[in-house]
Computed example of a mutant assay.
Amino acid sequence: MPQEPRVPFPNIDPIAFAIGPFAVRWYALGYLFGTGLGACYGYLMLANTRLWHKGEPPFKAADIWDFAFWTMLSIVVGGRVGYVLFYNLPFYLENPTQMLNTLDGGMSYHGGMLGLMLAAILFTRSKHGNWLSALDLIASVSTIGIFLVRIANFINAELYGAPTALPWGVIFPTDPEQVPRHPSQLYEAALEGLLLFLVIRVFTHVFYSLRRPGLVAGVFGIGYGLSRIAVEFVRLPDAQIGYLFGGWLTMGMVLSLPLVLGGIGLVAFATTRKQNALRA
Rank of each mutant, 00 (worst) to 15 (best):
F197V: 05
L196W: 10
R25V: 00
L257I: 11
F197R: 05
Y224E: 01
L29R: 05
G145C: 04
N101M: 03
V260F: 03
N11V: 05
H128Y: 10
P183S: 07
L93R: 02
F269V: 08
F67R: 10
L261G: 00
P5T: 09
L32K: 03
L100A: 07
L266T: 03
L244V: 05
Y109I: 03
P183C: 11
F245N: 10
L166V: 08
M107D: 01
L137M: 11
E4A: 15
A268D: 05
N88H: 01
A139F: 04
L194A: 14
D238M: 00
F154D: 03
L215Q: 12
G262T: 01
L100F: 15
G34R: 03
L257S: 06
S142F: 10
A68P: 09
G252P: 05
I64A: 07
S108L: 00
L195W: 13
L166E: 13
A165G: 13
D175F: 03
C40W: 12
L255Y: 01
I200F: 09
E158Q: 07
W65T: 13
F245R: 03
L148S: 07
G105T: 03
R212Y: 08
A230S: 14
G223Q: 03
S227Y: 11
L236N: 10
L37F: 09
H53K: 14
T164Y: 06
A162W: 07
R181T: 07
F269R: 15
F17K: 02
P21R: 13
F220W: 14
D238E: 13
F17P: 00
R273T: 12
A165D: 15
M251T: 00
D238R: 00
H128Q: 15
E188D: 06
L194P: 11
S209A: 15
L137C: 07
L249N: 08
L89K: 00
F67A: 08
I241G: 00
P176K: 10
L257H: 02
V260T: 03
R25D: 02
L93N: 01
T271D: 09
G252Y: 01
V231R: 04
N153Y: 02
G78H: 02
F22Y: 12
T143E: 09
A162K: 15
P183A: 14
M251S: 01
F154A: 10
W168H: 06
G42A: 07
R201I: 11
N48V: 12
G42N: 08
Y41S: 15
F123G: 08
A120N: 04
F220T: 00
V7H: 06
R279P: 06
I19V: 13
